[in-house]
C-alpha cells in the first residue's frame, strides 16, 4: 500500500511537471520544469528497482541535458513570444487534439488487454556488478558503438555550433562568382 501511494505521488509530480514544461510561456521555466519531470522519472526507475538506470537518468538528464537546454535557451534569447499575446495558437489546439487521439489509441489496448492484468512482480534487482559484467561481455560491441557515437556527436555538435568565419577566398576574389553577372556589371573583373 505504501509503495502504491508513493507511486501515485511521484506519477502526479512527473505529469504535473511535464504539463508545465509543455505549456508555460517562459522558455527558462519550461526548461526547469522539464528537469523536474526527468527527476520524477528517475524516482520511478528507483521505485522499479532499477537503481543504476535511475541514477544514470539523474546524471544524464537532470545533470547534463537540462543544463544543455538551459544554455541553448539563454543563447537564443530575444525571440520569445511577445507578452501581449494571450490566446494560444491554433497549432497548439491541433497538437493537443492529436495527442488526445494518440492517448486514446494507446490507453484503450492497455486497459482492455487481459494479459497485462495482475502480474505481481517477483523479486528482481539489477545489481551494478551484473550490469557491468553484461556490458563487458554480451553488450561489449554496442558499448563500443555508443562510445563512437558519443564522440561523433560531440565533434558534430561543436562543428555545427561553431561560429562561421568568413571565407578568405571570398575576400580575395579567388573563386568565380556564383551567378553569371549581367554584361554591364562592373563588379566582376572577368
Amino acid at each position: 500500500m505504501r509503495n502504491e501511494i508513493a507511486f501515485y505521488l511521484v506519477a502526479a509530480f512527473t505529469v504535473a511537471f511535464a504539463i508545465a514544461a509543455m505549456t508555460l510561456r517562459d522558455l527558462v521555466h519550461c526548461a526547469l520544469c522539464a528537469a523536474g519531470a526527468f527527476a520524477g522519472l528517475a524516482m520511478l526507475y528507483l521505485q522499479l528497482d532499477a537503481e543504476f538506470v535511475g541514477f544514470a537518468q539523474l546524471l544524464v538528464y537532470v545533470g547534463a541535458i537540462a543544463v544543455l537546454i538551459l544554455f541553448a535557451v539563454l543563447l537564443t534569447r530575444g525571440d520569445e513570444v511577445r507578452p501581449g499575446r494571450a490566446a494560444p495558437a491554433r497549432s497548439w489546439w491541433m497538437g493537443a487534439g492529436a495527442a488526445a487521439l494518440v492517448l486514446a489509441a494507446i490507453a484503450a489496448p492497455i486497459l482492455l488487454s487481459p494479459s497485462l492484468e495482475g502480474g505481481a512482480p517477483g523479486a528482481a534487482s539489477a545489481p551494478v556488478r551484473r550490469i557491468g559484467e553484461e556490458l563487458m561481455t554480451r553488450y561489449v560491441l554496442p558499448l563500443e558503438l555508443v562510445g563512437v557515437l558519443l564522440t561523433g556527436a560531440l565533434l558534430g555538435a561543436v562543428v555545427i555550433a561553431m561560429r562561421e568565419e568568413p571565407r578568405t577566398e571570398d575576400k580575395a576574389g579567388g573563386i568565380p562568382p556564383r551567378f553569371t553577372p549581367t554584361p554591364g556589371n562592373p563588379a566582376n573583373p572577368r
Binding site: M22, A37, A89, G95
Partner: peptide, 11 residues
C-alpha cells in the same frame, strides 16, 4: 507522458 510530449512537439 508520451502524449504530453507529443502535444508539445507538434503544437
Amino acid at each position: 507522458l508520451f502524449c504530453i510530449g507529443f502535444a508539445g512537439a507538434v503544437g
